[in-house]
Nucleic acid binder design. Structure first.
Lengths: 139, 139
DNA sequence: CTCTTTGTTCTATAAGTAATAGAGCAGAGC
DNA sequence: GCTCTGCTCTATTACTTATAGAACAAAGAG
């Protein structure tokens, strides 16, 4: 698990860590049961404080993507989560999606271009996109 | 221009104002030249400080969506912007899109469902989505 | 010419967040 | 015993968010 973070970014470090893990899970790079480095280890690797990693892991646990305990360390919980997504996740997510897409449209991207960008991003994830334009399974 | 903001949200007020304006521009509710209320007026309507509105308007100006001056007030700049989107906008936007989509996939949404959500969001904007599945212009 | 409204700028304050740091504890492995 | 693990606690520094009040120049209305 190689984690690239940008210390000069405006995005908080703990958020970047969370984002990279979420993407790795979606891409299938981190499957069910995959171990993540310990908070102290990852902090040392990235040259940051272990409390910052702790915050990222805690966030991921709240989202149901990580299980933490002293025995097993931090392991990915992709399938068979203890509970479904937090209540209201779908609505809140759709609202954020709409805002993000609106941003691109307002900047001059048209509908089909934006949709193509969505399809392109999704094809980088496990399972890909099974679309009417290419019926064959590509996963 | 009715602006709904949630004072109890975790999202900063100035960010909510920006987001709603961006969505209104994308949806075509705010066309080129549309006036926005003055910072003091909108602040009074929303029951917040005018500095907060000022920050939102300033953000929108930096993004090239708003022109501010003493003569005309705040007017929407959708087309014929002074400059194209800030350098690197497309890449940065695509990265945020990927993170957002990854979040949904990691939470159990599959590719086609996520893409459908994107299409649904885009159809609420001006121009809509002209897809291979429905060739007819719907704008 | 007043009076008001506009965008804009300045300082200031209180509350919260982000990141750092150090110390400590309980459970598990060697 | 020693080390490593997740976890918790306090603490500090810097930045962000939102508030507030004051002031200025340019424009419009009366």
């Amino acid at each position: 698990m190689i984690l690239r973070i940008d210390l000069s970014s405006q995005v908080p470090i703990y958020q970047q860590i969370r984002d990279r893990v979420v993407e790795a899970v979606a891409a299938g790079e981190l499957a069910q049961g995959s171990p993540l480095p310990s908070t102290r280890q990852l902090a040392a690797d990235l040259g940051i404080n272990f409390h910052t990693v702790n915050k990222a892991y805690d966030l991921l646990r709240q989202e149901g993507l990580l299980i933490l305990n002293r025995k097993t360390g931090a392991v990915v919980q992709r399938d068979a989560r203890t509970g479904p997504p937090p209540a209201g996740f779908a609505d809140e997510w759709a609202a954020r999606l709409r805002t993000l897409l609106a941003e691109a449209v307002a900047q001059g991207l048209d509908g089909p271009e934006a949709l193509a960008a969505c399809r392109a991003a999704l094809t980088t994830f496990a399972g890909g996109v099974v679309d009417v334009t290419d019926q064959g399974e590509q996963a």
